[in-house]
């Protein structure tokens, strides 16, 4: 995983909580992008196999995560990271 750093100015650095841990991300990048920076594995399927994002355009649902404390289930590839977000992949 790599965020390219030349030829780009990203937004400000913010922190979100991802699976209970604070991680630095850039404001406005998608949750999926921020998560990929941590690991390409997003969840385990019913066979216990590791799974990641696939389509990155809101169609496949593979990147669905839960926003806390409300518990909303959202597609991470469509949702921009914002200050204070608490995201769990379970």
């Amino acid at each position: 995983m790599m965020r390219l750093d030349h030829g780009i100015e990203r937004g400000r650095r913010i922190q979100i909580i991802l699976d209970g841990e604070r991680v630095d991300v850039f404001e406005g990048e998608t949750l999926a992008a921020a998560m990929i920076e941590q690991s390409s594995a997003f969840r385990r399927d019913s066979n216990g196999m590791a799974r990641g994002m696939f389509c990155n355009m809101g169609t496949c649902g593979e990147c669905t995560v839960t926003l806390l404390p409300g518990g909303q289930r959202v597609r991470a590839c469509l949702v921009p990271a914002q200050v204070g977000m608490d995201v769990t992949r379970d």
Binding site: M1, M2, T30, E37, G52, F54
Partner: peptide, 17 residues
């Protein structure tokens, strides 16, 4: 990834996965 998904990561997020 789907190739389009990978390209969108690059175009819109400037991330190479």
């Amino acid at each position: 990834y789907s190739a389009g998904g990978m390209q969108a990561l690059l175009k819109a997020q400037r991330i190479v996965p």
